[in-house]
Amino acid sequence: MPEILFREALKRGLQEALENDPRVFMMGEDIGEYGGAYAVTDGFLEKFGPERIKDTPISEQAFVGAGIGAAAAGLRPIVEFMSISFSLVAFDQIVNMAANLRYMSGGQINVPMVIRAPTGAGVQLGATHSQSFETWLAEVPGIKVVCPSNPYDALGLIRSAIKDDNPVIVAEPALLYGDKGNVPDEYYEIELGKADVSRTGTDITLVSYGYGMRPVNSAADSLEERGHSVETIDLRSLNPLDIETVLTSIQKTNRVVLVDSARRTGGVMAEVAAELQQRASEWLDGPIMRVGSIDVPWPYNRGLEREVLTDAGDVLAAAAEGYGM
């Protein structure tokens, strides 16, 4: 299988959609002439023209709302935020409008729109550009939220997101754009709302998503070196949340560490932990262990930021504390 970059996988998915469906168009800040802040849309303006690759003013509310309106009228817009932290400026449109339109119209209106946004810390952008608001958005009924952890998933999820008739948030971990991974030439999609058992094992289950899979995979390697058999689960999708796959795994391993790379409090794993407490406590040999980034605004300094961000050491410490591994 050919190896491609995470950003190239996204680009491939977007390009296919633009080529195959005339209803698909893109909007965002500097996605056209500039080529996109993370170069995902580089070359699109020349290929697809200004009607389909629309540079917007710095008006997140207006262009997200315009995407919703265009979707309600039957188009399939793909809207890009330069950072998921900027989604806060447009939360009214995403939550009050995109997520609620179908319900409050009694099913009359669909919003087949994709919102793409770089998420997460790790590139020293400071407090306002390093947050992970997929955790907030995942709570809202009426929108789907996915977050890929590797190039294969990025392509499979963006394909499904664009085809979905609901609003879908694709949170793209900013630290992963330059990661390489195997992506087949043959067409495939990844179903939204299904977790991936990315490594099978019998002694402990490590659960995460997005950038969090990097410390999880690293910790899993370390645990296996020490002779433990590790199962890893990549949630891939935060809404709908696939708790069943986690439950099935725990019935086998009886141990679990939940890993957020977002801030620990109020993260997605808080919800997973609550479900597991209710539905899986009889299967567990110890406490539900939860790891997340430290609950402070993101610092700029490299050393401080690294200390705040979840790493493999945090995961191993949790496995040791909870299960003596």
């Binding site: 709302g65 315009a66 309106g69 265009a70 039957g74």
Partner: peptide, 18 residues
């Protein structure tokens, strides 16, 4: 949501133009 409908309308108009 006061004024929230304005960009929605812009999007409908954008679709009509598109």
């Amino acid at each position: 949501i006061v004024a929230g409908q304005l960009p929605l309308a812009a999007g409908l108009a954008l679709a009509q133009q598109y």
